[in-house]
Design a protein around this nucleic acid. Structure first.
Ligand SMILES: [Zn+2]
Ligand SMILES: [Zn+2]
Ligand SMILES: [Zn+2]
Ligand SMILES: [Zn+2]
Lengths: 139, 139
DNA sequence: TTACACCCTAGACCTAACTCCAGGGTCAAG
DNA sequence: CTTGACCCTGGAGTTAGGTCTAGGGTGTAA
């Protein structure tokens, strides 16, 4: 069918390894997949999307445990729990965005210093940025 | 002097453990500190700034190796190397900022759905967000 | 000069998130 | 059928970034 995949195909389409998929299943980040009579896992296309969601969240600094608590489906007052989780994550994300902007600006200033120095003394080996960050003390 | 610290003070002021400081020194993220006759490390306040820089970069997803290559001081045409590194990091940071914004928006939409559902059916146990992620649609 | 908080090294240990391996079974093509 | 690519499990190994321990030395204030 167009919506039935073996683990290798899911791996290829979602960009993770077969081992990682089995690992995610063990960690309950993916529901236990149904099997063929012979024991092969049968996935559908939604698994692929879910893996992509996991990867995205992970790239942004969330742990598998955190992602798991967002994705887990047990407990009674689901909406309340999910809302609180989302609220916390959003606050976290805001903070991270802010300091990422600041760091971006800092690196931009460093880059400008480097360009300046290269223009001024193209053959100098002394990078003012390195002096500033790394050497910290003036020589 | 006001610019001489033992390792414990540096740890406290920079928010990392003593072990982490010694570990950073081993990894050459910090220069080998001078010692007292008895062998105690003597740090100055710039070490603290440097540790804070490392921590900030690390929080933003840079590995200690990457940070190290930015901070390392050997090689001849320093400025060129540092500029190229900074350039690459900035591009990376731009990409990360962009997808972080997108993820932020996605979570915001999820949160709105939750609030909506809680308003509409306060006692329902069925969270539409969980349903949606579990059967994810591509974003 | 003794008390006591603080520091030293080498090396073992820890957690997260994979990744690999041995030894074996499955399945579609020919 | 047979073959060869693909899949299974359980468990060991790996990497990054620390964290902890044992066994000892240091520094200073009373
Ligand atoms: Zn909800
Ligand atoms: Zn110059
Ligand atoms: Zn430079
Ligand atoms: Zn409803």
């Amino acid at each position: 069918m167009g919506n039935s995949f073996r683990i290798g195909e899911v791996a290829e389409r979602s960009g993770v390894s077969i081992d990682t998929l089995r690992y995610y299943e063990r960690r309950n980040l993916l529901p236990a997949a149904p099997r063929t009579p012979g024991g092969y896992r049968i996935f559908n296309s939604e698994t692929i999307d879910r893996v992509l969601f996991i990867k995205q969240a992970q790239d942004l600094g969330f742990s598998l445990d955190e992602i798991g608590s967002l994705l887990s489906t047990n407990g009674s007052s689901e909406c309340r729990r999910v809302r609180d989780l989302l609220d916390a994550k959003l606050t976290e994300l805001d903070t991270r965005l802010k300091s990422m902007h600041e760091f971006h600006d800092k690196l931009t200033r460093y880059l400008a210093e480097c360009e300046e120095e290269l223009k001024r003394h193209p053959d100098s080996a002394e990078c003012p940025v390195v002096v500033e960050i790394a050497h910290a003390e003036r020589t």
